[in-house]
């Protein structure tokens, strides 16, 4: 079962998570501990990286118009910053006493905090990226919602001309996202729904054409309308399912059923 829900987050955090876990285990096994080497330099490197992340993080917040991101990111940045202070304190304490147990605790707490803060930050950023994809999906839903007003061939031409680019964009973005996910079940759900939308698109166009012709000849209008509306509903349901799955970040047992 994957812990991180995207390959990017996994590739960034998994190596550090493994190292932090090892340190925690070693610390528990050797409570009194060996003398710690001077960690001043590696801690300074971490501090510089933290300062850069905080700078880039606040720049991202300032440039974004995503209110949820603006709300979610600062606590994660504070967590990382506070944790780096713990590391600096640990470094000072270890220089004075390389056997200091409280310093080791601070070292573990600081490393763990950086891992958790960076994880929260990446999650907030990732959720914001997902919201962008969802906006594209909703754009397609908006076009599907106005299908009923298409009752002339000229309207159909305009409709297809407008719908095609948003549909292509949605397909491309969902497809890229699907490849990013670590949960196989979520990936399969996205692939299935996207495939359905792709297959239903020509059926929809043809359904609208049949409806327009039926209206012009005044024959079978009700059936044509019912058929068209069914396809619209089916496509909309699949897009709603895509939106739902895009928002899943944790493993859900029931998804296997």
């Amino acid at each position: 079962m994957p812990v991180f829900h995207t390959k990017t987050i996994e590739s960034i955090l998994e190596p550090v998570a493994v190292q932090v876990s090892k340190l925690v285990i070693l610390h528990e096994e050797a409570e009194d501990g060996n003398a710690m080497p001077d960690l001043c330099r590696p801690i300074q490197v971490v501090k510089l990286a933290v300062d850069n992340l905080v700078k880039v993080g606040y720049e991202t917040i300032n440039f974004s118009d995503d209110q949820i991101l603006k709300q979610d990111m600062p606590p994660a940045l504070r967590r990382v910053e506070e944790s780096s202070i713990l590391l600096l304190q640990a470094s000072d304490m270890l220089r004075a006493d390389p056997y200091s147990a409280p310093a080791r605790k601070k070292l573990i707490e600081g490393s763990r905090g950086i891992l958790q803060g960076t994880s929260a930050l990446l999650l907030a950023f990732d959720e914001s990226e997902v919201r962008k994809i969802i906006r594209v999906c909703k754009n397609v839903l908006e076009y599907l919602a106005i299908t009923e007003v298409v009752d002339r061939m000229e309207d159909l031409v305009t409709y297809v001309k407008n719908l095609s680019p948003v549909l292509t964009r949605m397909t491309k973005e969902v497809d890229t996202r699907e490849k990013e996910l670590t949960h196989q079940v979520h990936r399969e759900m996205l692939i299935r729904s996207l495939e359905q939308v792709k297959n239903l698109t020509p059926v929809l166009i043809s359904g609208i054409k049949i409806y327009i012709t039926a209206k012009q000849t005044n024959q079978g209008v009700q059936d044509a309308q019912t058929n068209r509306d069914y396809v619209v509903r089916k496509m909309s349901d699949e897009i709603h399912e895509i939106i739902r799955v895009l928002q899943l970040t944790t493993y859900d047992e029931e998804e296997w059923d």
Binding site: P15, L26, N34, L39, L48, A49, V56, G57, F125
Partner: peptide, 29 residues
């Protein structure tokens, strides 16, 4: 993109730090 790069740097620096600390601890275990 910048945020991912910055996060990568932190993760790498923290992993290196923790590895150094673990190495010292491991000698005792």
């Amino acid at each position: 993109e910048q945020i991912l790069e910055a996060a990568k740097s932190i993760a790498a620096a923290t992993a290196a730090l923790v590895k150094s600390a673990s190495a010292a601890q491991r000698e005792l275990v």
